[in-house]
Design a protein around this nucleic acid. Structure first.
Length: 257
DNA sequence: AATACCCACAACCGCATCTTT
DNA sequence: CAAAGATGCGGTTGTGGGTAT
């Protein structure tokens, strides 16, 4: 546990920053618990504070400029998809930290999003955009091996449900269901300039590779290297249709990307 | 000029998860 | 396998600077 007794808190001084930078230069990142004994008496900070200071402020590649329109757009899209998973969102924005993305969201975007949602609520039902719902078709991994092998060439087109390793859908609490975001079979987008979904171009950082990696971070062990979003509370869905109806919003988020 | 208020962001805190013993 | 320790994450708070009154 942290021994925080007698440890300094509050804003960091120039000297403390230099001590921490010198420590990182000498020993590298990580091993935060060793900082108090290695960095000397001038750096009387707990390891958590040191880690935060380095990650959010001192790290050389941090982009401290104001957020560009593209970055804001990316944050909005990723937040729609991932929610408040700031580290994942920041991971898609080079040079940005989870803390800075979170701060930007809370100070600039949260109000906008909330007011927009309020507007949507107040709209009459008939003016709402109709969604085309494509019901998923259960497919086993063995039959999907073809598209699993072409992930680098394609981009997201249609979500499907995947079964478990044994080819069956979940039957009990120990089984896990995954939502798979497959690539469009047979369509090679690697040679085109930028993938298009309807009339909406997909930002370059959200090409299939990004989504794929995203999926790996969301749930890497359930589905191996495929792009997947693990569905929690799967036990609520006794049949595929129930699951699909319940998750229309999540699927729409993907379409809106 | 003084004060109040607001905003942006750095930093802290508690908790969850992962790793080590 | 359990406990302890280490790390990482998201929510929240504190504070300094800018602006309005």
């Amino acid at each position: 546990m942290d021994n925080t007794i007698g440890v300094k808190k509050g804003a960091w001084t120039y000297e403390e920053d230099n001590l921490l930078k010198a420590y990182i230069n000498k020993y590298g990142e990580g091993k935060w618990h060793l900082i108090p004994q290695r960095a000397g008496s001038g750096l009387n900070r707990c390891r958590k504070s040191c880690r935060l200071r380095w990650i959010n402020y001192l790290k050389p590649n941090i982009n401290r400029k104001s957020f560009s329109e593209d970055e804001v757009d990316m944050i909005l899209r990723l937040h729609k998809l991932l929610g408040n998973r700031w580290s994942l969102i920041a991971g898609r924005l080079p040079g940005r930290t989870a803390n800075s993305v979170k701060n930007y969201w809370n100070t600039h975007l949260l109000k906008k999003v909330v007011s927009k949602q309020e507007e949507e609520k107040e709209k009459p039902m008939e003016t709402m955009k109709a969604h085309q719902v494509i019901k998923p078709r259960p497919i086993t991994f063995s039959t999907q091996s073809s598209w699993l092998n072409v992930k680098h060439n394609n981009f997201v087109t249609q979500p499907l449900l995947a079964s478990n390793n044994d080819g069956c859908f979940p039957r009990d609490r120990d089984d896990k269901m995954t939502m798979v975001v497959p690539n469009q079979i047979g369509k090679d987008c690697a040679s085109s300039s930028q993938p298009i979904l309807g009339n909406v171009p997909i930002p370059c950082t959200m090409w299939s590779e990004s989504l794929w990696n995203l999926g790996e971070q969301v749930d890497s062990e359930i589905i191996g290297s495929s792009s997947s979003l693990q569905v929690e509370n799967y036990e609520e869905f006794s049949i595929v249709d129930d699951f699909w109806d319940f998750n229309i919003c999540d699927y729409d988020s993907l379409w809106d990307l």
